[in-house]
Amino acid sequence: MVRISEFQIKDVVNVADGKKLGNIGDIEINLQTGKIDAIIISGSGKILGFFGKDEDIVIPWKNILKIGEDVILVRFKETTEYKMNEEEA
């Protein structure tokens, strides 16, 4: 068993490129099944005069590959990566 407070302090790492996405800011729970549908990584705030914040990253539960002691490994690809790859091809 894992508590939500323990879950939130783990780093979320994308196995596609090895980058740290951040930490879990929220979770989506299906009220009918009582299961977690997705984790949400809060977008970071903009710095030095840029207002607003980055988009939240929503990772479906099925894309969580491994929950370790310090890290949560996920499979995540941003749509901007797809656009860059299509332009390069």
Results as ranks from 00 to 15, higher is better:
28 E>M: 04
66 K>P: 12
28 E>G: 05
19 K>W: 08
66 K>N: 12
21 L>P: 02
85 N>V: 06
79 T>F: 14
3 R>P: 09
39 I>P: 03
50 F>L: 11
57 I>A: 06
19 K>N: 13
80 T>K: 07
44 S>I: 07
67 I>V: 12
61 W>P: 08
57 I>E: 06
69 E>Y: 09
82 Y>N: 05
81 E>L: 04
39 I>H: 04
89 A>S: 11
21 L>K: 02
27 I>P: 01
71 V>L: 15
6 E>A: 06
36 I>F: 00
63 N>E: 10
79 T>L: 11
21 L>H: 04
26 D>H: 14
74 V>P: 02
39 I>F: 04
21 L>N: 03
29 I>A: 09
29 I>D: 10
79 T>H: 11
19 K>D: 14
14 N>P: 01
8 Q>L: 00
84 M>G: 07
38 A>D: 03
80 T>A: 09
23 N>Q: 10
12 V>E: 01
37 D>Q: 00
9 I>R: 14
24 I>A: 00
42 S>W: 12
87 E>C: 03
13 V>C: 11
46 K>C: 12
59 I>F: 06
85 N>A: 02
14 N>W: 02
35 K>M: 13
77 K>G: 08
66 K>Q: 14
87 E>N: 07
45 G>L: 10
43 G>R: 10
48 L>S: 12
42 S>M: 13
22 G>M: 10
45 G>C: 09
19 K>Y: 15
13 V>G: 08
11 D>F: 10
58 V>G: 06
76 F>V: 00
65 L>E: 13
31 L>D: 11
22 G>I: 03
34 G>I: 01
27 I>N: 06
81 E>K: 04
72 I>W: 08
51 F>T: 15
10 K>R: 14
67 I>M: 11
